[in-house]
Amino acid sequence: MNILITGISKGLGLETSELLLKNGCTVYGISRTKTEELNELMLKYPNELKWLQYDLGDIERIRQIIFKDWIGLNTPIHGLVNNAAIAYDDIITNLNLDLLEKMYRVNVFAPMMLTKFVIRQMLIHKESCSIVHLSSISVHTGYKGLSMYASTKGALEAFSKNTAREWGEIGVRSNCLVAGFMETEMSSALSDNQKNRIYQRTSLKKPVDLNSVAETILFLVSNKAKSITGQNIHVDNGTI
């Protein structure tokens, strides 16, 4: 299976890429930077891991650079994992439009365009395809300072459900993985006190395990999940 995944230089993207590779997938991974950990993974899987340095804020060139020049229209894509995202956190009265627009480009518009071109590629190859968008528990449970970020993920959830409905008949599945708070760079701006308060709101009272999220993504892109589409799958330590 050929899987396109974004944001693979660290955190969940890196963990998921490694898991996909271990399970025999060919990974087309995109990130802005190449970290030491990513470099190690590339050395371990020189043929199976294909890497492109690309800033997803550059939406206009996605088709040309990612699909035409890099993957190539002759390569079928069986899975898309929209993982890359930026977090612009602040209270609403401080909302800065430029920062909000930048976040929407990366978190919403780029995943929508990637979905567009993955489906178009799929129409040529006629092989089934599974799309997984990374969403966040902040869509479903309010947190102070996360309203702007949460709104980008809410947009993805709506987009995913409608993608599932519109393209299901030709074999496209689309689901969102609703992740709870993990110990990644994304949440590193939070103080220990803030993090502990967030973890106390979960049933399991601790950060969500990265590997558990990655395993669920692997499941959703695989054929084992072939009857699952249009869903939001919560991996959030029971935030209820």
Binding site: I119, R120, Q121, L123, I124, W167, E169, I170
Partner: peptide, 11 residues
Amino acid sequence: LDLAELTVRIE
């Protein structure tokens, strides 16, 4: 959906 496929094949 057929028209979408037609577009992609022409492209």
